[in-house]
């Protein structure tokens, strides 16, 4: 059940945007992940998530603000789901759109009270075809009094 006071949040569109991942950025991610052997000429599949996150017209702090949560309070990822229709390519411009799916309150054994903010983003090519769909949930720890 959507958290009381946020019933209108599900379905809220996130600002659309665009993303172009350069070849040098591709190489940098491969270095960070230890996948320097990637010579496929394609972006690492993790770039579906990264491209969606960076390409959507809202930063992580912006997205957390939909739940009135400050990024300084340490949001964490709960779940991540990627569906890749086709591999992504460096130096190609993609469009990104998305929406908030839900905000629910949970009580965890170790995490205490937290909110789960779920949102979905789609990466589209220049012709409007969906290349990837990314669904994320962020864990937003709440102090007992909030």
């Amino acid at each position: 059940m959507t958290l009381e006071g946020y019933e209108n949040l599900p379905g809220t569109a996130l600002p659309a945007g665009t993303i172009t991942i350069s070849s040098s950025e591709s190489t940098e991610l491969d270095r960070v992940l230890g996948s320097e052997d990637n010579d496929s000429g394609r972006l690492h599949p993790l770039y579906a998530f990264i491209g969606a996150q960076r390409g959507i017209g809202a930063s992580i702090p912006d997205i957390c603000s939909y739940a009135d949560f400050a990024v300084e309070d340490g949001p964490m990822m709960g779940t991540l789901e990627i569906e890749l229709e086709e591999p992504m390519t460096p130096d190609v411009k993609y469009h990104v759109e998305g929406e908030i799916l839900d905000l629910v309150r949970k009580q965890g054994r170790t995490r205490g009270i937290f909110d789960l903010l779920t949102f979905r983003e789609r990466i589209l090519d220049e012709t409007g075809n969906v290349v990837a769909t990314v669904t994320n949930s962020f864990v937003l720890p709440r102090k007992a009094s909030s």
């Binding site: 690492h44 990627i82 229709e85």
Partner: peptide
């Protein structure tokens, strides 16, 4: 997630990852 994807790419060379949860 990237570590796990790398494991998949190396274990299944030439495979194409289409879904990851």
């Amino acid at each position: 997630c990237g570590y796990v994807m790398n494991m998949l790419c190396r274990a299944v060379p030439g495979g194409q990852l289409i879904r990851f949860k």
